[in-house]
């Protein structure tokens, strides 16, 4: 049995750190784990996706359509974009922030309205939050990724808060640790 988690967003939002954190914490729980990242050109403000898979034995490093148990999205449109990857009835944890992609900025397209409702209509369990505001409350908008990971952590009874915090210590540079711990806590409690 493999659990599949996709972390999606806009290049530069910190999806690599979020997936690293998840990969680390499940590794400490004794699972086989694979985390697949994309580097290079698509990181420049494009749509980015990372895959985290864990279980007794993991072969493929990627998650395909219909396989994701969870999608953690740092941006609303990006959650909608990858919805097809979700298992029927799977859960989406989404930052309600909207970032205009270039075709919207140039006026060639419009940002779709009512995406959260449309996602719910497909049967997905949608958990939306203003993670950016909470990150600012924690001290920096850059901690949006960790706020969402805090929220996501609520869905895993088997991993204690202390274990998540230990993995944060292992994954985050010391000078940003307190900020990220606060962001995680606020995301988890919110």
């Amino acid at each position: 049995m493999v659990t599949n988690v996709m972390v999606v967003g806009v290049g530069g939002q910190g999806s690599l750190l979020a997936s690293k954190l998840l990969g680390h914490v499940v590794m400490t729980k004794g699972y086989d784990v694979k985390v697949s990242e994309v580097h290079g050109m698509s990181q420049r403000g494009g749509s980015v996706v990372t895959y985290v898979r864990f279980g007794e034995k993991v072969y493929s490093p990627v998650i395909d359509k219909g396989e994701a148990d969870y999608i953690i999205s740092f941006e609303t449109l990006e959650a909608a974009r990858y919805l097809e990857f979700l298992k029927p009835g799977g859960r989406v944890i989404v930052n309600a922030q909207e970032i205009d992609p270039m075709p919207v900025i140039t006026g060639a397209a419009t940002y779709p309205e009512g995406l959260l409702d449309k996602m719910k209509e497909t049967g997905a369990q949608v958990d939306a939050m203003d993670a950016l505001d909470i990150a600012c409350e924690a001290g920096s908008p850059k901690a949006t990724n960790i706020v969402l990971m805090g929220r996501f952590s609520k869905y895993f009874d088997g991993i204690t808060e202390e274990e998540w915090m230990k993995s944060l210590e292992a994954c985050v540079p010391a000078k940003f640790l307190e900020l990220n711990k606060k962001a995680f806590q606020l995301g988890r409690d919110n």
């Binding site: 219909g66 919805l83 075709p103």
Partner: peptide, 16 residues
């Protein structure tokens, strides 16, 4: 595999 239905007509997000 069964999947969640795709949402159609979403604007692309190319790198910039």
């Amino acid at each position: 595999k069964d999947t969640c239905s795709a949402l159609e007509g979403l604007p692309i997000r190319p790198p910039v």
